[in-house]
């Protein structure tokens, strides 16, 4: 009896960290001012250090837009991202050619978490793109991606 009960409990316990989809956003003025002008503060934990490093070295063409900033701030933000990066927690961190992934939406963790979302849903006018976290995760700007604050718009 005890053993029969133990297994589900053990599985439930193991799955807890995966359910805790909240990220603490460490305070950083440069990060907030520069990185949140055009998009929400994507948690530094969502990519590994090497990905952030490549991102910060290519701001003049940041996913098709010029996001260049002055060097002093760039260095400060790069250090901040490296310190708070996700390490191996993001799952796969390189593409098929071995280059660091720059899109959080291409990480193994993101794909696993969103495998039930259909292509049609992503394309809804109210969502626009998988990078628009706040469309469904109401508290995304605060780092809260938990199940209870998800509401998929029509």
């Amino acid at each position: 009896m005890t053993r029969q009960l133990a297994l589900p409990f053990l599985l439930a316990a193991l799955s807890l960290p995966a359910l805790a989809d909240s990220y603490s956003l460490p305070k950083n003025v440069a990060f907030e001012e520069e990185c949140t002008s055009c998009h929400i503060a994507y948690p530094p934990q969502m990519l590994d250090a090497r990905s952030w490093q490549h991102m910060m070295n290519g701001l003049a063409n940041h996913f098709g837009t010029d996001a260049s900033i002055d060097d002093r701030r760039r260095t400060a933000i790069a250090d901040f991202l490296a310190r708070n990066s996700g390490g191996r927690k993001t799952g796969r961190t390189v593409d098929a050619k071995g280059n660091p992934l720059l899109r959080i939406t291409e990480t193994a963790r993101f794909e696993r978490k969103h495998r039930d979302v259909t292509a049609a849903t992503w394309k809804r006018a109210s969502i626009k793109s998988p990078a628009n976290c706040a469309a469904c995760h109401a508290q995304a700007a605060a780092g809260d991606y938990s199940e209870r604050s998800i509401s998929i718009p029509k």
């Binding site: 055009c38 998009h39 929400i40 996913f63 098709g64 837009t65 626009k128 793109s129 990078a131 628009n132 706040a134 469309a135």
Partner: peptide
């Protein structure tokens, strides 16, 4: 085209 209003980023919607 009325910059007295709040805008939205064309890509991210912010």
């Amino acid at each position: 085209d009325k910059p007295t209003q709040v805008g939205r980023h064309a890509k991210t919607d912010k």
